[in-house]
Amino acid sequence: MNPPALFSRRDFLAATAAAAAATATRARGAAAAAPAAGLVDTHVYLGRWPFRRAPLDEPAALVAKLRAHGVTAAWAASLDALLHKDIAGLNARLAEECARHGAGLLVPVAALNPSLLGWERELRRCASEHRMRAVRLHPNYHRYTLADPLAARVLGLAAELGLLVQIPLLMEDERTIHPLVNVPPVNAAPLADLLKKIPALRVQLLNAHRTLRGAPLLSLAAQGVHFDLSNLEGVEGVTHLLSQLPVQRLCFGSYAPVFYFEAAMLKLKESVLDDATLAAVRSANAHRLLARA
């Protein structure tokens, strides 16, 4: 068994560029036939994953991929938010990058690290100056839990400002995470009490399906919590999830560029979904969720 020889670097790069262009052309054709309701990706990032380069971690490349697949809006937060301390700087940069790339495609989502002084002022600035309508929190990277009084203050202020709160429960499979940044998943259970105490609070949990399933997930959904499908696994995963979860609670989300965008897209094909369900998951739920925030 002699496998084919390795590509030379030049051949590889040339072929890669050609393949990407061809893929974009084909996908543009597919996008033209996409439902008029559009496709809202509630879960993308700009910036770089700290531990590897992703092929689409430049905004222009990500925007091209999203456009090629018919995405009409993408809620973009900053990966820099995980470890950077200058949150004001990265929020300003995020707002500028979203404005510069995509001609309105990218919807900036605020970063916030409430373990740093001045977080309240920064969140207010995101709402008033940057006109951001959502904030994405990473409690596990910023060393607080949703049971901490600090979390109640953060979520309370977000609700007061009319911001949707997105919380990824994890960023990586805990089995293969970098050993120096062994971050546990966020425990979502305290959200139940927070939602009771803060009636105006709107929450979407991202990357939730590895660690939150069954009754705890459904209970939060009954309180209005929304989810994305980025790390939903198992064959016909959307069908199985929606056999329990009200369809109004599920939004399209890809976790690009950390995950291949196509994973989320193909999930809508793997499950047999009627037009109403597809429209809800692709965009209607997201539009409603952000409009309420």
Binding site: A15, P55, E233, G234, G237, Y260, A263, M265, L266, K269
Partner: peptide, 25 residues
Amino acid sequence: APGRSFSSQLAKVHGAAIPDSAKRL
């Protein structure tokens, strides 16, 4: 599969920036 979705795993190839000839292999 079925523990994993076909979708997430196919995406590793369909979504990769590699030549079509590599994808066929």
